[in-house]
Write a protein that binds this DNA or RNA. Structure first.
Lengths: 146, 146
DNA sequence: TCCTTGTGTAATTTTTAGAATTACATCACA
DNA sequence: TGTGATGTAATTCTAAAAATTACACAAGGA
């Protein structure tokens, strides 16, 4: 029933990796400073993106790099990496409908059938945006890589 | 950054009104029983839908009725009625990016530009589902109106 | 007319999910 | 082997969602 800020933080990290990854070692501490959230959250997000094959993180010595071209990193890919099957309950449903009422008994399945099409649309939409788009948008701000 | 259960509760209420509104007085107490949530929440949702011109509620004697044909009650209409401009922050964004970092300084605008297209898609998607669809789905379960 | 059964809302408390923090094991390289 | 990283579990803090409480007001019937 929600899309938390994780997805945005992940994009922030990926953008940072793309722009600065070539010239410096990008650690969770550095990303924590840039994003304004704490290193543990960053590491958990980075770990999820590593498992999803988006980046590579070297334990010990530290640092991370992109392992896919930006055009192939869709927002959907990032989203599922950090939120798992989060779209499944994109729209919240009340948890205690009455089993004594015919509508209460069936409301879940009635809603889910139609909500599924919304999820599909959302999935498609998230797939249509890639890291390359964010990079292009970032470059427009005039703050190129150092 | 979220879609709460309000929307689902609202659909539940509208479905109830459509199926039982003709034969009995549908009060917030009754809907609270059916949905499993409390009467104040129901009244607040009903009040919002009344303001949006979807239903009519008679204070005092009690009861509510639909004032639009089900085909014209889109999920988007219900959503905006009960959540206002909720889609604006459908996807959460971290609130404290560093102003010292070029990416931190620009991440909001970079994200929002692309998120806007996702919101547009979501809007369109919610507009494509109507109460009539939910009614049809409900009828399929074999639990027709009494 | 006043009593009952509703609605309309504000204010407060409870609950829950999201995020931060703490703690510590492990890894890689100098 | 010491240092600066990552990897994660466990706990605490915070903020948004929902429930609860309280009470003013509305309409219709006894």
């Amino acid at each position: 029933m929600r899309i938390s800020a994780k997805c945005s933080i992940a994009v922030h990290c990926l953008l940072f990796l793309h722009e600065y990854g070539g010239t410096q070692k990008v650690t969770s501490g550095l990303l924590a400073l840039s994003t304004g959230c704490n290193p543990v959250m960053i590491r958990s997000i980075m770990s999820a993106m590593k498992k999803a094959g988006i980046i590579q993180v070297t334990a010990g010595s530290g640092g991370a790099v992109l392992v896919l071209p930006p055009e192939e990193i869709t927002l959907y890919r990032v989203y599922t990496a950090v939120e798992g099957d989060g779209l499944r309950d994109l729209i919240g449903v009340h948890s205690m409908p009455s089993a004594l009422c015919p509508i209460g008994r069936n409301i879940r399945v009635v809603l889910q059938k139609r909500y599924e099409t919304v999820r599909e649309d959302m999935r498609r939409s998230l797939q249509s945006v890639t890291l390359a788009d964010f990079i292009a948008e970032y470059r427009k701000t005039g703050s190129g890589p150092v």
